[in-house]
Amino acid sequence: MAEHTKAIRFGIMGCAKAATKVSRAIKMSPNSTLYAIASRSLEKAQQFATENGYSDQQVVIYGSYSELLDDPLVDAVYMPLPTSLHLEWAVLDAEKKKHLLLEKPTALDATQLDRILEACRSNGVQFMDGSMWYHHPRTAKMKELLSDSKLFGQVKSIYSSSSYVGGQGFLENNVRIKADLDSLGALGDAGWYCVGGILWAMNNNLPTTVTALPSVVRNSDGVLLSCTASLHWEKEEIVATFFCSFLAHETMDLTISGSNGTLHLEDFIIPYEETSASFKYTSGAKFVDMHIGWNVKPEEVQVDTGELPQEARMVQELSRLIQGIKYSGRLPDQKWAEVSRVTQLVIDTVIRSINYGFEPVYIY
Results as ranks from 00 to 15, higher is better:
65 Y>Q: 02
65 Y>G: 02
70 D>T: 03
71 D>A: 03
71 D>H: 01
71 D>R: 03
71 D>P: 01
72 P>S: 00
73 L>P: 00
73 L>D: 12
73 L>F: 05
75 D>S: 06
75 D>W: 02
76 A>N: 04
77 V>H: 02
78 Y>A: 05
79 M>H: 03
80 P>V: 08
80 P>T: 06
81 L>S: 04
83 T>E: 15
83 T>C: 15
83 T>M: 13
86 H>L: 10
87 L>W: 00
87 L>G: 03
89 W>L: 07
90 A>T: 01
90 A>G: 05
90 A>I: 05
90 A>Q: 03
91 V>Y: 04
91 V>S: 01
91 V>P: 00
92 L>Y: 01
94 A>T: 05
95 E>T: 00
95 E>W: 03
95 E>H: 11
95 E>S: 04
96 K>F: 08
96 K>T: 04
98 K>H: 09
98 K>M: 09
99 H>W: 10
100 L>V: 10
100 L>T: 09
100 L>D: 09
100 L>F: 03
100 L>Y: 06
101 L>N: 08
102 L>Q: 10
103 E>G: 08
103 E>N: 15
103 E>C: 12
105 P>Q: 13
105 P>E: 14
105 P>A: 14
107 A>F: 03
108 L>H: 08
109 D>E: 09
110 A>S: 15
110 A>R: 11
111 T>E: 15
112 Q>P: 07
112 Q>Y: 10
112 Q>L: 04
114 D>G: 11
115 R>P: 04
116 I>P: 01
117 L>M: 04
117 L>K: 04
118 E>W: 01
119 A>Y: 00
119 A>R: 02
121 R>K: 13
122 S>F: 00
122 S>C: 04
123 N>S: 01
124 G>P: 02
126 Q>L: 05
127 F>N: 05
127 F>S: 04
127 F>A: 06
128 M>K: 06
128 M>Q: 12
129 D>A: 11
130 G>F: 01
130 G>M: 06
131 S>Q: 14
131 S>K: 13
133 W>I: 02
133 W>L: 05
133 W>F: 12
134 Y>V: 08
134 Y>I: 10
135 H>K: 10
136 H>I: 02
137 P>G: 02
140 A>Y: 12
140 A>E: 15
140 A>M: 12
141 K>R: 14
141 K>A: 15
142 M>V: 15
142 M>K: 07
143 K>H: 14
143 K>G: 11
143 K>C: 11
145 L>A: 09
145 L>M: 12
146 L>F: 05
147 S>E: 12
147 S>F: 07
148 D>R: 07
148 D>H: 10
148 D>G: 08
150 K>P: 07
150 K>S: 15
151 L>F: 11
151 L>M: 14
152 F>S: 03
153 G>S: 12
153 G>I: 10
154 Q>S: 14
156 K>S: 15
157 S>W: 13
159 Y>F: 15
160 S>K: 07
160 S>C: 12
160 S>D: 08
160 S>V: 09
161 S>L: 08
161 S>A: 13
162 S>L: 11
163 S>L: 09
163 S>H: 10
164 Y>A: 11
164 Y>T: 04
164 Y>R: 11
165 V>G: 05
165 V>Q: 13
